[in-house]
Simulated scan of single mutants.
Amino acid sequence: MKIQLWSIGKENDPYIRDGIAVFQKRLQYYTDFELRLIPTVKQAASLPLPELKKQEGKMILDLLGPQDFLVALDERGKTFTTLQLADFLQQRINAATRQVVILIGGAYGIDTQVLQRAQLQLSLSSLTFPHQLVRLIMTEQLYRAYTVLQNEKYHHQ
């Protein structure tokens, strides 16, 4: 199964890029993982917020394949423990899912049409995090979940 972490926004700051690289390298032993940065909409600052979200949503929907399992990170989504995330990944593996796309939306959230397309809406926390930091957190959590599935010692239960 391939996992893609999609994020709308700019390149990572060096400390984020370095952290992601550590867990991306570790993840390669368990799964095919890719971080995909999607550039912001042109002239985003001049667009009304609903129009910006709509245009971002259209970009996302155009990039998704029909068989992609979409997980949208959204503050109103379901919360998982690390063990539940590991169970979710195992379910996707068992279901022979070819690709899971985990989406970090733009600065103002994810368009309704994309949320409706998502098979799962997931919340990392009730707190608000910078999008770049969410990329690092999600990459680490994926690595942690895979170590749980392999009964390795990284995650302490």
Rank of each mutant, 00 (worst) to 15 (best):
Y154W: 14
L63V: 01
I60K: 02
Q91Y: 00
N12T: 12
L136A: 13
L63A: 14
Q99H: 09
D62G: 04
N12C: 14
D68R: 09
L124N: 06
Q113Y: 13
K10F: 08
P50A: 09
S125W: 13
A96I: 00
R98D: 11
H156Q: 13
R26P: 01
L70F: 03
Y146G: 05
A45S: 06
D18S: 14
R26H: 02
V22H: 09
T147Y: 04
L35T: 00
A86K: 03
D87M: 01
D111Y: 14
G9M: 11
D62H: 11
H131P: 14
L124P: 11
V114R: 11
P48K: 09
I3S: 09
R92H: 01
L37G: 01
Q84K: 10
T40F: 00
W6M: 07
K42F: 01
T139D: 11
I3C: 08
F69K: 01
A45M: 03
Q43G: 02
M1S: 15
I102S: 02
R76D: 03
E56I: 04
V71T: 08
Q4T: 10
L85T: 00
T147S: 05
L47A: 03
Y146F: 10
I20H: 06
R17E: 15
A72D: 02
R17D: 14
Y30D: 02
Q132E: 15
P66S: 13
A118K: 09
E152K: 15
I38Y: 01
R92P: 00
L49T: 07
Q55T: 04
F129W: 15
S126L: 08
K53R: 12
Q28S: 09
H131Y: 14
T81C: 06
A44Q: 07
Q150S: 12
T79L: 06
N94D: 14
I16R: 12
H131F: 11
G9H: 07
N12L: 15
A107S: 14
L115Y: 10
S7P: 09
S125R: 10
P50V: 05
Q84R: 10
E51F: 00
K42L: 08
A72R: 02
M138Y: 05
L115G: 06
Q99N: 13
L149F: 07
S126V: 09
R26V: 05
L37A: 03
A118H: 08
S125F: 13
K153T: 13
W6P: 04
L136D: 06
D74G: 07
E56P: 07
F69G: 01
A86T: 05
G9V: 12
V22Y: 07
D18W: 06
L136Y: 12
V41S: 02
Q28V: 03
Q4E: 15
A96S: 04
G65Y: 09
L124T: 09
K153N: 14
K42E: 11
G105K: 06
F23V: 07
A72E: 04
F129M: 13
A118F: 05
G106A: 10
G77K: 01
A44I: 04
T82V: 00
A118N: 10
R144P: 12
E140C: 15
Q141H: 14
L133H: 11
K78C: 05
L27C: 02
L120T: 05
M1K: 12
Q121F: 02
Q119T: 12
F23N: 06
Y108T: 11
D68E: 13
I104M: 05
Q113D: 15
N94K: 09
A44Y: 01
L35Y: 02
Y108A: 15
K153A: 15
V100L: 11
